[in-house]
């Protein structure tokens, strides 16, 4: 956490009474509480700041030390033993632009202080169990990997976990891995881990949910006379019959040839193909003659 003034964080003056501190803390906690701001990292950071400020200012002894020593209030006794000038120390620490404590620097003791400060306000649940913090992580997958259910190992907060990724997971989708978040306090359960999937699509298919879309080139003669072509799908090529006189941009649905449906075993979306008719180029004299003959036939009706 950056070296912020705890009074500023709570939006109060240095002469604020205990009641004013409590009121300001509660108002801000209601605004930034993680339960009310799901997946909002900024709110979570702000909530940590508010808790830290409240932890210090709501305790008269800690507040006194903070007023004297600023961000280094926890070392008040050491400073006093070493004969530091409190007033000089205070002005230096308040003006310092160096960060004092980042979120990741929090020790277990700090967290339990935070929790106890919250429970202090609750009054009744002094020894209640507290669920650990939820963690958020992002996992990048390619579309091919998202096509099949597979296991993957990942490291979250220095812990290796192996998770099963169900086929059909979507870009931006969030899945919850219970119990893999931060540790609980007072024997409470661990928090959960939320994984957001990022699935860039560099394949020839466009994806919308479980349906896939692709353009397929069709030569003029097959479009005119009909026939059979090979169409690529995500699961290999399939044979598709082309009707006579197929027009450009004709769409055909290949049922069940799309992407797997999330958590629906053996259920697949559809593949929609759009024919792009390709006209022949560099016609030979003989081909031109044949086409002219065809054109005359058509004109003569």
């Amino acid at each position: 956490m950056a070296d912020l003034n705890y009074y500023t964080i709570l939006g109060i003056t240095q002469s604020a009474t205990e009641a004013e501190i409590k009121k300001a803390y509660r108002k801000l906690a209601r605004k930034y509480h993680p339960d009310l701001n799901p997946n909002d990292q900024e709110a979570q950071r702000k909530f940590q700041e508010i808790n830290e400020a409240n932890e210090v200012l709501s305790n008269p002894d800690n507040r006194k030390k903070y007023d004297q020593y600023g961000k280094d209030w926890k070392h008040a006794e050491e400073f006093e033993k070493a004969g530091y000038n409190p007033n000089q120390q205070r002005s230096e620490s308040r003006q310092s632009s160096q960060s004092s404590k980042s979120y990741s620097d929090f020790s277990e003791a700090d967290f339990s202080d935070l929790f106890s400060s919250m429970y202090g306000s609750a009054g009744k649940r002094t020894q209640a169990k507290f669920r650990g913090q939820d963690y958020n992580a992002e996992l990048q997958l390619d579309l091919k990997s998202a096509y099949t259910t597979h296991k993957q190992s990942l490291t979250v907060n220095d812990k290796n976990i192996r998770i099963t990724i169900p086929a059909g997971v979507e870009n931006g989708q969030v899945i919850k891995i219970p119990n893999h978040g931060g540790p609980g306090a007072n024997g409470g359960p661990n928090g959960d881990l939320y994984i957001t999937f990022s699935i860039p699509n560099d394949s020839q298919f466009k994806r919308e949910g479980a349906n896939l879309y692709a353009n397929v080139d069709l030569d003029l003669y097959t479009a005119l006379l009909g026939g059979e072509i090979q169409v690529p799908t995500f699961d290999g090529a399939v044979k598709v019959k082309v009707a006579e006189s197929t027009q450009n941009n004709t769409k055909v649905k290949l049922k069940g040839k799309g992407f797997p449906k999330y958590k629906q075993e053996n259920e697949f979306g559809d593949l929609y193909i759009t024919y792009q008719i390709k006209l022949p180029k560099n016609l030979s004299a003989e081909e031109k003659k044949a086409i002219q003959k065809l054109s005359k036939l058509k004109k003569n009706g």
Binding site: R26, A29, H33, D35, Y119, A122, R125
Partner: peptide, 10 residues
């Protein structure tokens, strides 16, 4: 979650 809202945030 509702416990936290009630007891911690009043």
């Amino acid at each position: 979650k509702m416990m936290r809202l009630h007891y911690d945030l009043q």
